[in-house]
Design a protein around this nucleic acid. Structure first.
Lengths: 195, 195
DNA sequence: CCTGAAAGAATTACGCG
DNA sequence: CGCGTAATTCTTTCAGG
């Protein structure tokens, strides 16, 4: 597909704000006709940029279960399968997979059996589970500009989603590539030995 | 406002799946007319249950910055003000406030200055900051637990969004599938004839 | 909450640069 | 190939019961 341009981004922004805004109105603010906007939105859907049109629901008004954040550590080779299983579970709303394989899950657990529900959810796969009760949830759908990045702890380059991360002595470190990670870990370990 | 009923919840479910589904189509599966669904949706918006209509965007396709999870500890008396500030910031998508006051924030932070961006975001308010690179994000908009699950009037199974509804003698009946509906309607009509 | 009519928006068809 | 205009179709909103 053709690359996204600035107009696509503005359309996404406007839709994120109000997905039911008429295409013609969107077109007016971005300088296109209604059908042209419609075409672009279809393309954005086909390309998978727009996953779906949906509603942001204030779940606190539905009193539907205990909101919890779960931090789970799972063996590296099971991260993907566990992530899929968990994401598919009823009551699970968000799954964030950290580069180091840690899963952060937001869900609404059944009343009175939060602990057992979480334990069942992960089965024997999790080596560590941390459950926190959540008090408030905010969602701000935004497209987000274009200029962001972490610095590689080794070489200072920009870390993209293809980068790597690791935990050393309780802290997380990010790298632009595995060789930077290897060099850094190597030096870290020698420092540890020396100390 | 009048309390939410099962029909409202099913409408929310259907909208969460696809917010552009026509009201008439929603009405067909929940056993209402288009205008009736429209009325309910308006009420749900007024009541604040529906915060907004929006799009779920796959931000990984936008290459728009590095996704990070920030865990922040802030003094108890500042949790609310910090939460508001953070939620309002550009690039912040989610803010989860734990019952113990810990904030978990998902954001896409500015290029080449993630660390400083995060530090600035919280200013002097945070006593502890933990930043982790995120590799994958899943969102499953769902209305919430099985507590509101409807039972199929014919077989007792859980009625999902794929189920059907119909009105018989002024009452609404829900079914897990069309064959259950057919059987139920059939029996209902024979009872009516007999009476 | 329903039905039916009017207003409004999305999609399609087709011509242009 | 993307865009614009105009016709068609579909959806939402409005009136009345």
């Amino acid at each position: 597909m053709r690359d996204l341009d600035d107009t696509d981004l503005r359309i996404l922004e406007l839709l994120a704000e109000d997905a039911r805004r008429p295409f013609a109105a969107i077109g007016e603010t971005v300088g296109l006709s209604g059908p042209a906007v419609s075409d672009r939105v279809s393309r954005l859907e086909d390309a998978g940029v727009i996953r779906q049109f949906t509603v942001d629901i204030d779940r606190s008004t539905l009193r539907g279960g205990v909101p919890v954040l779960v931090e789970a550590t799972v063996p590296a080779d099971q991260v993907e399968s566990v992530r899929e299983t968990v994401a598919a579970a009823e009551a699970v709303e968000h799954v964030f997979t950290a580069a180091d394989g840690t899963l952060t899950v937001f869900a609404r657990a059944p009343e009175n059996r939060v602990r057992s529900w979480v334990t069942e959810l992960f089965g024997d796969d999790a080596t560590d589970l941390d459950v926190t009760l959540v008090d408030d949830v905010r969602w701000t759908p935004n497209v987000g500009g274009g200029e962001f990045a972490l610095e590689c702890a080794e070489c200072g380059n920009t870390v993209t989603a293809e980068g790597t991360s690791t935990r050393l002595g309780g802290d997380a470190y990010h790298f632009c590539c595995s060789s930077c990670e290897a060099r850094f870990v190597d030096r870290y370990e020698r420092l540890e030995e020396g100390a």
